[in-house]
Amino acid sequence: MFDGYTASQLMSIFAMQGFAGLILFSVFLLMALGLAIIFGQMGVINMAHGEFMILGAYVTFLTSNFFQSNLPHFFGGYFFFAMAFAFLAAGALGYALEWVLIRHLYRRPLDTLLATWGVSMILQQVYRSVFGAREVGVVLPDWLMGSYQVTDMIDVPINGMFVMALTATITAAVFALMFRSTWGLQVRAVTQNRVMAGAAGINGKRVDRLTFALGCGIAGVAGSAFTMVGSTGPTAGQLYIVDTFLVVVFGGAQSLFGTIASAFAISQSQSTMEFFLSGSMAKVLTLLTVVGILLLRPQGLFVVKVRK
């Protein structure tokens, strides 16, 4: 498949596609982080996770419109507000959803699967009614436009670099929360042994609700980032949810490092192959590879080893 390209052209292609893959990696990673901490904490697979991302994207769209018409002087900074609002909106919706629905369905994985799938349908319809079926895009402030030329043939878009810096920051923040904060300690204790965590004095239900809210909030921020690289429509979340599941399962649901590594591997291989093969062929190849590796390592890439 490399016929007809010179070596330097190939280098540039790999570099450019690799970079495009990094943006995909950012969105995957943010989505997968949220999904993985929710799954790890309470064994709930949130089928509506993509819609939480899209909520964040719509909030970003609304914030950008608001700034454009009311605060045009501050338009350059709207994105930071948009991210905060996206996090809060998606987090609040997640908190409410946990309280109204999820907490009644613990220990019934199939029911939560169905229920959250239903929620995803409802949210899609709500988006369609409120924002219309047409996709919307946000206007980027000037400082995020344009690109940075590395060589004659390679240039990297500034918004892509911004998205990656953002993702790195959020990932670091999630790590700090998980491994340095009392909340994270509680999450990890409940994840390992809910009954014992309770007997040690930890309020598992409260931890559940906060974790679900946080996971959804991160999806909201992923939605903010997503507006820079894709256009937002009612069903756009569906395109990402399957890939995100793939990332979580491939990485091993209990390991945040695994999530990062698998998001990277999957996004890079997809992006690079997409240039040479058709998009769906790239997907098929990725999927086959993942399935093959999972056959050999059913617990995912990373497993924490301790004596039982």
Partner: peptide
């Protein structure tokens, strides 16, 4: 809690 450190195990209490 097997994957928590000794110190973290104590902190859960």
């Amino acid at each position: 809690f097997p994957t928590l450190t000794v110190e973290e195990n104590i902190r859960t209490g």
